[in-house]
Nucleic acid binder design. Structure first.
Length: 382
DNA sequence: AAGCAACCCAACCGCCGTTTC
DNA sequence: TGAAACGGCGGTTGGGTTGCT
């Protein structure tokens, strides 16, 4: 069933001629496109409004950047896709001058194939089963063979020289600073609060024991954790859904209008920058939580509880400033606090909806390696 | 040079959410 | 309040191009 505008009139289909382009361009330049359905008629085109819109957006728009995608753009696509999946329009918003169609085509014709060739599932960005097997057979340790969930295996897999899994060219490598932090965070104490990234140092997980404790305490209490260093960023996963497996997220940015907040149902699609294996906060039942919180962190929680009881302190007095009400897009006064919360209290009982402020993420340099210190420096062997 | 296959990409299709009447 | 119109999006298709045999 198509649009009525397309079925009512006799419209031309197929490739646009230069004359048609010229007409459309001239009309929109002069009059704009307040109503697409009126554009073809007014511009004297035998096309449907939808077709005109598409032609304008994908080809005629003056701000379009043509040509091949840069490595930076490729990384951006990969990073955002890892979070959002096939939401091409959202991904394209992070690539000035690129259209969703362009991004989609580039993904399907290039990136997807690279991922597959490197043994990664283009949907989840995780290892494909066959590759997992390979890795496992070569000494994957711990509870799982997927390096996304297994720090040791992951480190091995990401080793720039690592071909222990039989893969001549590792799909990605973590840049040494990031990897160092990663290793410290996941292999050796001090314990790090999984999922907390230091926004002051984009791409770096918070590496201080205290932060881990603070976060743990806050999370345990269902409070948003406030990283009180002037640019804090919180990720709080709380899912009260009975199913208990959906990771709902909301990123709130006090300094942003959150104009691009978007909903993303069904939780995180994959192991990504908030890798569920090493960076997942899951909820108040602490089921999954328990799998990622180290014993020392638990002790920290307990100590904090005691401290609070002994001194009659509110939580905020233990872990920092008081949490703000969970209001999407709420302001904390400029550079203050960025709170991300996920809660079915906020997003309904289903608890499966995610609001996700990518502008915030971007501004924090979490994507695109904006600060030159991305979470993962991807190295492509094309 | 011709035939074929693979690839690329512009455009279409169908669905969905929002707006308008 | 419900239906129609519309805008937007993601998936798919088909024609043109390129590379290989």
């Amino acid at each position: 069933m198509g649009h009525q505008c397309c079925s009512k009139q006799k419209v031309k289909r197929g490739l646009w001629s230069p004359e048609e382009d010229e007409r459309l361009l001239r009309y929109i330049t002069a009059h704009g496109h307040s109503c697409w359905s009126a554009v073809p008629k007014n511009a004297g085109l035998q096309r449907c409004g939808k077709s005109c819109r598409l032609r304008w957006i994908n080809y005629l728009r003056p701000d379009l950047k043509r040509g091949t995608f840069s490595e930076q753009e490729e990384r951006t696509i990969l990073d955002v896709h890892r979070i959002l999946g096939n939401r091409w329009a959202q991904i394209a918003k992070h690539l000035p001058g690129r259209t969703d169609n362009e991004v989609k085509n580039f993904w399907n014709s290039c990136i997807k194939k690279k991922l597959i060739a490197q043994g990664l599932d283009p949907k989840t960005h995780n290892l494909l089963p066959a590759s997992k097997h390979l890795l496992h057979a070569h000494g994957g340790t711990g509870s799982g063979s997927n390096p996304s969930n297994n720090p040791a295996a992951r480190a091995q897999f990401h080793s720039p020289n690592g071909n222990g899994n039989g893969c001549a060219t590792p799909p990605f490598t973590i840049s040494s600073p990031t990897k160092a932090v990663y290793d410290a965070a996941t292999v050796a104490p001090p314990v790090v609060a999984p999922g907390l990234y230091d926004v002051h140092n984009p791409g770096m997980m918070m590496g201080q024991h205290e932060r881990g404790q603070q976060a743990a305490i806050a999370m345990q209490q269902g409070y948003p954790y406030v990283h009180n260093n002037g640019g804090g960023l919180l990720m709080n996963f709380r899912d009260q859904n009975a199913a208990g497996v959906h990771a709902s997220m909301d990123f709130m940015n006090g300094s942003s209008n959150s104009s691009s907040s978007m909903e993303y149902a069904a939780g995180m699609p994959n192991g990504n920058v908030f890798n569920p294996g090493v960076a997942a906060f899951m909820d108040e039942t602490a089921a999954m939580w328990a799998t990622v919180v180290e014993p020392r962190m638990g002790a920290g929680i307990e100590m904090a509880h005691q401290h609070r009881q002994q001194h009659g302190l509110g939580l905020e007095e233990v872990v920092g400033p008081p949490p703000r009400p969970l209001i999407n897009g709420g302001s904390s006064g400029g550079k203050g606090l960025d709170i991300m919360d996920v809660s079915s209290e906020v997003y309904g009982s289903a608890g499966t909806t995610t609001a996700f402020d990518l502008e915030l993420m971007e501004s924090c340099g979490l994507f695109c390696g904006a600060a030159g210190n991305g979470m993962e420096q991807l190295q492509w062997d094309c």
